[in-house]
């Protein structure tokens, strides 16, 4: 496939995201027509004559806007983190929870809920423990004898399982009337209750992680080679790998701390994008960003509109992701 064609695919994906983004405002219990919606949005920039009600504006700006933006950010970050981890670990099965970021975040959130903290503190605690778990995995991988990449994969499984055990213990001792449901609900993953200030909180670590990944994305290709090869090409593989791991971990931790455990996105979306643009990260990374955002928006629209009560988004991504992945296993040779 020529690069021009890959470029066009990324542009189509961006257009798709814009369409889904705008339409997502219209879905919901409270009906807002596309016409009114566009006028409300434009009014934020250029003042227009008010033809909409104050409730409409409140729904669009204070409720749907943060949620839609958050869905985009989380989808974008999880997909990019998955794609990057796959390159770093030379493993097509890698996903953002590969190094324990998700189980760490789950433990942090459960702990904060147990201690009766505010929703702000739950996010901070989830973010903190997510980083702690990956840091532990990194230390084990770095200092254990043998190949550090393999060690990290094994350490990731162990640390994840350790934090999951911790989370289970917290669930055991939590108050079954209010804390336990809160923990369970958090673990299922949800974007409901997204507020503008939470979006801003998540945005900072996301930007810090996303920028280096985006600008250095071509180099991630070289990490898929052996260290001998990359070093002989003049690339410091260890340094590059560390930068990519830290950046991917930051965006994963920021995502799961505001959204809860949302699985499969980081595994499935990069694979779909590999099909569309090929494996070169120059195109794979932007494609994963926009397609991840689009996918998450679509799933979140289903999550808040399909049933009278909201379906936690983590359940939906698993329902969509797992069967898709089974299909991928059967067609394996095309991707790998």
């Amino acid at each position: 496939m020529e690069n021009g064609e890959k470029h066009r695919i990324v542009i189509y994906l961006v257009l798709l995201l814009i369409i889904v983004f705008i339409l997502s405002f219209c879905f919901g219990r409270y009906n807002v027509s596309l016409h009114e919606l566009l006028r409300i949005l434009v009014n934020r920039v250029i003042p227009l004559e008010q033809t909409w009600t104050a409730e409409m504006e409140a729904v669009v700006i204070n409720i749907r806007l943060p949620r839609i933006v958050l869905a985009c950010l989380v989808g974008c970050c999880l997909s990019v983190a998955g794609a990057s981890y796959q390159g770093v670990f030379q493993n097509p099965m890698a996903s953002p929870d590969f190094l324990g970021a998700t189980s760490g975040a789950a433990f942090g959130a459960a702990l904060a809920i147990l201690l009766g903290n505010s929703s702000r503190m739950i996010i901070v605690s989830a973010f903190f423990f997510s980083l702690v778990s990956v840091f532990l995995v990194y230390l084990i991988g770095r200092y254990a004898p043998g190949k550090s990449v393999m060690n990290m994969i094994l350490a990731g499984i162990m640390i994840s399982s350790l934090f999951t055990a911790g989370t289970s213990f917290i669930k055991l001792v939590a108050d079954p009337n209010n804390q336990l449901p809160a923990i369970t609900y958090w673990l299922m993953g949800s974007l409901s209750g997204a507020k503008n200030n939470e979006v801003v909180f998540a945005l900072i670590p996301m930007a810090i992680g996303m920028i280096p990944l985006f600008v250095m994305r071509w180099r991630i290709n070289i990490l898929t080679l052996s260290d001998e090869e990359s070093n002989a090409m003049g690339i410091n593989a260890n340094m590059l790998r560390l930068i990519v791991i830290i950046s991917s971990t930051l965006i994963t931790a920021a995502s799961v701390s505001v959204s809860g455990t949302i699985g499969w996105v980081g595994l499935v979306i990069p694979h779909l994008c590999r099909r569309m643009t090929g494996n070169d990260y120059t195109y794979l990374l932007p494609a994963s960003m926009v397609f991840g955002a689009t996918f998450m928006l679509l799933v979140d629209n289903i999550s808040r509109n399909l049933l009278a009560t909201e379906i936690p988004i983590g359940i939906l991504t698993a329902f969509i992701g797992a069967p898709f992945f089974i299909r991928l296993i059967f067609r394996r040779e095309r991707v790998l």
Binding site: Q86, G87, N91, P92, N221, R274, N279, D280, V335, L336
Partner: peptide
């Protein structure tokens, strides 16, 4: 065998 199937040009 590389983990990902890059094109020869890549």
């Amino acid at each position: 065998y590389p983990s990902f199937n890059y094109s020869v040009m890549d």
